[in-house]
Design a protein around this nucleic acid. Structure first.
Lengths: 277, 277
DNA sequence: TTGACAAATGACCGATTAGTCATTAGTATA
DNA sequence: TATACTAATGACTAATCGGTCATTTGTCAA
């Protein structure tokens, strides 16, 4: 488990320096200080490595954002907090941002394309949720346009973090973009992305979390878990899925146990979706 | 010269399908119906091909936008026309957009990184020029932020053209984004990209067109040119640079001769810059 | 110390790569 | 037709790739 992480981190460095195709397995193992054979004990192929990396690096990004969006109840500050968390992440993980937001070689590999598209869709959902909470019925059909503007702001300003390391005032940036978002939300009159267009652009079909997929995810993580509270929480949640017993409060509590540790953010996120919490 | 174009076009197809590193010279020559040796008669290396492609495809994009920006005197419509030309280009050349705006492997090759950065800077200049004409002193230090928003809109909505081929109402999109831009320009109060930040983000130093570089560019093109009017225009402009004789009107006329043919857009653009026209 | 097992190694394999070059085909001039 | 020249070919090379596997190393309990 630790070996996998080591490989993923060193691989990320190399990918962000040279690109995916231009980086050989040999180079990765050299930087890790391990043999080529050892690499293939952790990952079956080079492609499997990159798929794991997408999960490893994007899951945290998605869940962090979602947590801010759903955890900030103050309408005055939620937009600012949203942008702050986004750009803080870009700042802290500029290498992975360089790799996954720019190197779209990945888009030519179908499995990865769907994976990345799915994560992007999750991000879109979080943003839409935020907009719905913030503006409720004021926006109506305009909310998809506002979402696209927000994504555009992210992409445009993220460059500042990805391609240079100058010190930037995150607070000021977040305030500036929050204001711009609010202005657009209030004054826009000409929509482009209308409701009838939405089904076409939200490519990955809106799928709910399937019971089997979730059970499998939990099962996997029980084996890798040693911490007692987390392990117990996962086991209880697993039982709850197979045989519903407890009320919402207990379930939410168990999920919150997991949310405390970044390593379990993704499980918490997916499980909460399953239980509609 | 025609062979070069053939190779660049087929290579673009393959790059947009598979990515740059994943495409072999062999595959390119097979799709062209030529031998491997013939490829190396046109380009010294695979890298030289991609450098030529960046010039070939981005020059036209940049000059098209600049022409719209500087050629539309109606303040009411310039923003709409700007967006229309941008997205029309994305629509017509979605393959090259996929390659050059997404596959940033190129960013790991230093020469290409500087080239692409330089073209992006040209685009920024055109946008800033448009904003200065439109809002003059109203914007002041806010203009850089508005430029970043425009670029964000472009990046965000371009996806619709790059990753799908559904029919989209360009007119409606342009109107929608023009309104958003105008709203931001009028209501924003919190800037982020302040004047003192600008020197740091505009990485490539603001360089004027150098006399020698321009002479070399013209020289190169004389050899590849057969059309009489264009060839004569280029030769006269070359003489004019070395030995100024004519007035602005004649110079502008000669440049306009070149602008009529897309193949000479870039020369026209650069020469106009040199003569401050 | 021994034996059993897992972890780790790196020489090795077939496939593929970018790039070369002796050879051939095609064309224009004399 | 003979000559001279360029355009085009594709077999070839040396290097590198992802991936394998017989072997070695390390770590336990007995």
């Amino acid at each position: 488990m630790l070996k996998k992480q080591l490989i993923m981190e060193k691989a990320l460095e190399l990918f962000s320096e040279q690109g995916f195709e231009a980086t050989s397995v040999q180079q990765i193992t050299e930087r890790c200080g391990i043999s080529k054979g050892a690499f293939y004990l952790s990952f079956k192929t080079k492609d499997e490595l990159v798929i794991s990396m997408v999960d490893y690096y994007l899951q945290q990004f998605i869940t962090d954002v979602d947590q801010v969006v759903r955890g900030t109840y103050n309408k005055e500050t939620v937009l600012v907090e949203f942008y702050k968390s986004i750009f803080q992440a870009f700042k802290d993980h500029s290498a992975s941002a360089r790799v996954f937001f720019n190197e779209k070689v990945f888009l030519t590999k179908k499995e990865l394309f769907h994976k990345i598209t799915a994560y992007e869709a999750e991000m879109s959902k979080s943003i839409l949720y935020m907009l719905e909470q913030l503006y409720q019925d004021q926006l109506k059909e305009m909310k998809y346009d506002v979402m696209y503007c927000i994504k555009g702001f992210m992409k445009s300003y993220a460059e500042l973090f990805i391609f240079s390391d100058m010190p930037l005032d995150l607070e000021q940036l977040a305030k500036s973009l929050a204001e711009k978002t609010d202005i657009i939300a209030h004054h826009t009159t000409i929509p482009f992305i209308t409701a009838d267009l939405v089904p076409f652009i939200a490519k990955p079909c809106e799928e709910d979390v399937s019971k089997d997929a979730l059970l499998q995810l939990l099962e996997q993580n029980i084996n890798h878990t040693e911490d007692s509270i987390e392990k117990e929480s996962i086991e209880l949640l697993k039982q709850e899925i197979e045989n519903p017993t407890y009320g919402k409060a207990i379930i939410k509590g168990l999920i919150e146990n997991l949310r405390l540790d970044p390593a379990y953010h993704w499980i918490a996120y997916v499980t909460a979706k399953y239980f509609n919490i």
